[in-house]
Nucleic acid binder design. Structure first.
Lengths: 213, 213
DNA sequence: CAATATTGGTGAGTAGCACTATCTAAGTCA
DNA sequence: TGACTTAGATAGTGCTACTCACCAATATTG
């Protein structure tokens, strides 16, 4: 198929496809002459993946490139593989972040610190720092409850990983990590709305608790 | 305190503070003359909050403005209040998103559809659409497990809401929703790394990933 | 009191990002 | 043959979150 057909098939402008080609997000088509190239289904699939990473998961173009490159060249260890997805999603933290705070939390939750990436720990510390900077200091019990819920999710994530082929594994881990994040956040919001409705009712005044207005 | 001291206290450049003043994120100081104004602790706190919303939570300036305005003018109903936080965090979905898919999921999870905001449902549908566009179709059981975990988190969120004053409620809900999101995502990644390490071992180096080409 | 520094207010400039438009030579298709 | 399409390259756009520069008015300092 020619580029205009590829554009029609994916609903992405030709100029944008050329841009993705230039940025090495999309592999080139087969040149049939100096001004013609042939594209196929793999390009359609790849473009849909690109749009999901950039649009749904909110990655930058360069982070998407790193992820796509990682999918094509699966690393040997599963940890490197996870790391690629995680680093793409985590905006790089400042170098001077003190990680000690994360270590004690990891210990409390039984997550081996040796398994955990430094920059991910830094992301947690920074996020918690943002909370306390804003004057919001969650009780430890709440954090523990969050941690328990996320551990449950992570168990499900890891259990479901297919181990038949490296490509399938890569695909599952990366997409399951990155593209699932907005799903989780949307679920949380809906669950909050539902819980809030049940507890406080739809009106302004809650029925069982103090005044709301 | 003068603006330069405010800048020193918050580690934010004077020009940026002036920008936040212009953008109505920060309330003005008390003018003592045509070229002098006095700032106080409330400005310091507000600036920290602004940086947390923009930096940690990743909000845009205009979304942050909406949130800050919401905190200052607490709406009557808790649902409007939740809505302010949720809309700030949710990038507006296309209008033509079909919500039916969300409705059946909500029903399955026992979350009353009448409690749930339309645009949040659209966000869920879009996120799921992104998944399937990318060729990733999670089994329903997995989604159910995610939903159960998020319900648990949402219950904790709602239970912990203080009801003593509208301001405190607002503060708690907005910050607990927005600033907690990066915490949750970081937790999930760490839990994934820990679970992956337990399940697959650290065949590669579990340390921070190497140079990204 | 005079010299120097700082400030509020404002308009313009900047950097980065994700495209988008335009152009040309070289093709393809009817 | 002649209208249409394309690869490849360069340049331009719109947006966002700052950042800079300037000026008149004031504050501070010697």
């Amino acid at each position: 198929m020619r580029i205009s057909q590829l554009a029609a098939a994916t609903d992405i402008p030709v100029a944008t496809i050329k841009y993705y080609l230039r940025e090495n997000l999309l592999h080139e088509g087969v040149l049939t002459s100096a001004t013609q190239a042939r594209y196929d289904d793999s390009h359609v699939r790849r473009l849909k993946l690109i749009r999901a990473l950039i649009g749904t998961a909110g990655l930058s173009v360069s982070a998407a490139r790193a992820v796509l490159h990682g999918i094509e060249n699966p690393p040997d260890s599963r940890h490197e593989l996870l790391g690629i997805a995680h680093q793409a999603a985590t905006r790089p933290a400042a170098d001077d972040v003190e990680i000690a705070g994360a270590q004690s939390l990891l210990a409390r939750w039984g997550w081996g610190a040796e398994a955990c990436d430094r920059s991910t720990q830094a992301a947690l510390v920074q996020a918690l720092q943002g909370l306390s900077d804003a004057g919001f200091n969650p009780p430890e019990a709440l954090l523990d409850r969050y941690a328990a819920a996320m551990r449950d999710i992570a168990e499900a994530d890891v259990e479901g990983v297919p181990t038949d082929s490296p490509e399938a594994t890569m695909q599952y881990v990366v997409l399951g990590t990155l593209l699932m994040e907005p799903v989780l956040l949307a679920m949380r919001r809906l669950a909050q709305q539902s819980a809030s409705f049940r507890r406080f009712g739809g009106s302004g005044t809650p029925e069982s608790a103090g005044p709301a207005s």
